[in-house]
């Protein structure tokens, strides 16, 4: 069953965000094995899991669409610098706009429509009541620059990487729901540099292999990988910018509230070569699921317990789980018959 967008819920303050039973069922659970290890876990971004799956389409529009778009507006109103595009990335931004509009209109004709007559385009987003005519490639004909325009209509964060000098440089992006990083700081960095703080991956050669793989990524053959962390409360904007506002929540976990307040935060990252600019677009789509909801799936509960229990200390610290990791393992252990 396909999940239709529902009324707006909040990812801050009163945290009214919930997952329906259908949303829990389609949650992109990220652990293929009992023991978690880093790997270049990349696969072709092809449909998987059938109708209603989070991997049915190029872009997944789910029941949280309106909520996430409303949250994005709040973040951008507060800090417009969460969206930036260096001047040489203009073409890449148009590439991305085209890729997103075409796939949304093809995959969700009930919500989106695109009509193209040469460079004269007509875009309709019925979910957000947007109806605009513009000239493709001419930013003055859009209400906002192309990345800012389309980024406010698609769930997930976006980073656009310019390819030059044997590397990939993050020279544009819209980042309003990151797992503790700052686009403003990381802007302009090479692939290796912006992964600088990630432990273990450099000595294991993972970053270098991933970079080489991405630099050879052909047009029309997008790939995806999953990443994950744990977040306290259903907070989308766990940016570094706001760490001074949400950091204290990490100290709010008790054995009594751990199941309700800790969310498994999964990122489905899609990497796609842009046809005109040769840039690589990274879409980072975030899904949140409370441990309480997660353990309703018995197989996930067992797997989650074992991956958390065997997590290396360096990753526990890097992912910011140190204050509550033990309580998470204890909570999950009751669902694992091996204990």
């Amino acid at each position: 069953m396909r999940v239709a967008p529902k009324e707006i819920q909040s990812f801050r303050d009163d945290f009214t965000y919930t997952n329906s039973a259908a949303a829990i069922e389609r949650f992109p659970f990220p652990f293929p094995e009992d023991e978690y290890r880093y790997s270049v876990n990349i696969e072709a971004h092809q449909p998987k899991g059938g109708e209603g799956s989070a991997f049915e389409h190029y872009i997944d529009v789910d029941e949280h669409y309106l909520s996430e778009m409303a949250e994005r507006e709040l973040v951008l109103d507060d800090m417009p610098s969460r969206c930036l595009a260096m001047p040489h990335m203009e073409l890449a931004c148009w590439d991305m706009l085209e890729r997103f509009m075409v796939s949304l209109a093809e995959d969700y004709p009930e919500h989106f429509a695109l009509t193209r007559d040469g460079d004269n385009w007509h875009w309709e987003n019925k979910l957000l009541h947007i109806d605009d005519h513009f000239t493709f490639g001419d930013s003055t004909t859009l209400p906002r620059p192309p990345l800012d325009y389309i980024g406010r209509q698609v769930q997930g964060d976006f980073a656009l990487m310019d390819q030059r000098e044997g590397n990939l440089f993050m020279d544009a992006g819209m980042v309003t729901c990151p797992a503790d990083w700052s686009l403003a700081f990381d802007a302009g960095m090479s692939f290796d540099e912006w992964h600088g703080p990630v432990p273990m991956v450099h000595s294991e050669g993972i970053i270098e292999r991933a970079r080489k793989y991405l630099m050879a990524l052909p047009v029309g053959q997008p790939v995806r990988r999953l990443n994950w962390t744990l977040t306290v409360n259903a907070r989308m904007d766990t940016s570094s910018e706001k760490y001074n506002e949400w950091g204290h929540e990490r100290a709010s976990i008790t054995p009594e509230n751990v199941g309700e307040k800790i969310y498994l935060r999964v990122e489905v990252q899609v990497l796609d070569r842009m046809p005109r600019s040769n840039a690589v677009t990274i879409s980072i789509r975030t899904y949140l699921l409370s441990l309480e909801d997660l353990v309703t799936n018995k197989a996930w509960a067992v797997r989650m317990h074992r991956t958390m229990k065997t997590l290396p200390q360096a990753l526990i610290d890097y992912k910011g789980l140190t204050r509550f990791h033990g309580m998470v393992v204890d909570y999950l252990s009751q669902f694992d018959p091996a204990n």
Binding site: S182, F185, D186, A187, G188, M189, E193, G196, P197, S240, Y243, N244, G247, H248, R250, A251, R323
Partner: peptide, 27 residues
């Protein structure tokens, strides 16, 4: 005015190191 924890994460564009509020989790 926040008391900032200094890291080794460096931006060539900013010529500066990344920092964040040191006691954000527990004042």
């Amino acid at each position: 005015g926040a008391m900032l924890e200094v890291t080794d994460h460096f931006s060539r564009l900013h010529g500066a190191y990344f920092s964040f509020q040191a006691n954000a989790e527990d004042s």
